[in-house]
């Protein structure tokens, strides 16, 4: 195979990381649009998160072709031999890391913090905007987490990434969300608003979501 084609493949594969960053920024914005504390199935947040996982697990997934007997010519090494292609790849990666991740994402998060205050002023809760701001501020570590969840050399990499993301959500995020639900229940109760019992039950549900999953699988 010509070296140029190898270089094009290297550039495209090296750009999957920056593409995942862009997906995560879009996911953070979509999260606020869809509610902040919830997201739509098939909506923007789930779509962009899926794409982030696909981009980070793309290279290992290509080994499916080898598994099916179709020869795949992976480019040897990571260095891009063609200088102008290397410059394009470097330029896009620098643009994403220095401009979008380091500058634009924190600015959008800061706007969400203002939106949280405005939400409170308009009678809605500030939590959706605060959570979205936190998500945007944390996209670097989220990117690193998803990257670690999509192992190199495993053709099930995307599925493994989604599985590990579910486990992380159920075992790490949900127990903390239970504490937040108890706080919300107390505030609702203080102002004699309906819904505090629902939040208390939600706290119990957040703490038992793994058991609920096992229960449903046993019922099948």
């Amino acid at each position: 195979m010509p070296t140029f084609l190898f270089d094009v493949m290297r550039v495209l594969l090296l750009l999957t990381g920056p593409a995942a960053f862009v997906c995560l920024v879009n996911a953070g914005i979509a999260l606020r649009r869809e509610g902040g504390t919830v997201f739509w199935i098939g909506g923007g947040f789930s779509k962009w998160m899926l794409w982030a996982v696909i981009f980070l697990g793309l290279e290992p997934t290509l080994t499916w072709f080898q598994f099916l007997g179709i020869p795949v010519a992976f480019p040897p090494g990571y260095a891009v031999g063609t200088p102008w292609l290397a410059n394009i790849q470097q330029g896009i990666a620098t643009f994403v890391s220095s401009f979008i991740v380091a500058r634009i994402a924190p600015v959008v998060a800061a706007y969400f913090v203002i939106r949280a205050v405005l939400d409170t002023a308009s009678g809605a809760g500030p939590l959706p905007s605060v959570l979205s701001a936190m998500f945007l501020l944390a996209i670097s570590s989220t990117h690193a987490l998803i990257d670690a969840w999509t192992p190199v050399g495993n053709r099930f990499s995307i599925a493994l990434g989604l599985e590990t993301m579910w486990t992380y959500l159920a075992s790490r995020i949900m127990p903390i969300a239970a504490g937040l639900a108890v706080c919300g229940a107390i505030v609702l109760f203080a102002f004699n608003r309906p819904g505090y019992l629902r939040l208390v039950m939600c706290a119990g549900g957040f703490l038992t979501v793994s058991a609920l999953w096992v229960l449903i699988t046993r019922m099948m």
């Binding site: 501020l137 570590s141 987490l145 790490r172 995020i173 903390i176």
Partner: peptide
Amino acid sequence: MDFLTGLTNLTSWFGN
């Protein structure tokens, strides 16, 4: 900065 730490600190700050 990661989301879990932020969420934990937010919950702890609000609750405690």
